[in-house]
Amino acid sequence: MADAKPVHHTLSVLVENKAGVLTRVAGLFARRGFNIYSLAVAPTDDERFSRITIVVDVESAPLEQVQKQLFKLINVVKITELAPDEAVERELMLVTVSAEPGTRGQVIELVQVFEGSIVDVGHDAVTVMLAGASDKLDDFEELMRAYGIVELQRTGRVALPKLERQAPRLRSVSGKVG
């Protein structure tokens, strides 16, 4: 999955916060034969709107057609395509891992390396929270498999565009020098 990156594109879709909006979006994908890889929904700071972050499998349909069909939905206000190198993308994972007394130390060590945190401890298992880029989560998941994953839940990706690197003033200064 990790090396097949180009088939996934992230769309950040601003929608009106109205009943049934998620059904409209999901239904559109289903009836047009577009595949959703992951999907996350939450209200924005403006209570009239929600943001749906959809990771689209673009092998199922051209991204342009997906965007245009989405935009036809009356409740869809804005669509931003976030290319992987122009966006900050994060995902959250909760995973319960077997941690017998003999292996618990190794699990905790790996959690620290990945900058995760242990949010619940049982008698022979721990639940770990890890936030980060999706491939980092993939790697952690792979490592935990050896210890025994009891349960796992990922949120799907959320994303925002990357910010401008240069401050406007600096840019004008360098212009003068040139």
């Binding site: 009943a19 049934g20 059904t23 409209r24 239904g27 009836r31 939905l73 009356i74």
Partner: peptide, 14 residues
Amino acid sequence: TTGITMPVTKHNWL
């Protein structure tokens, strides 16, 4: 009704 007709209307309202 709104669920059934969602795919065959430009928009619908309950």
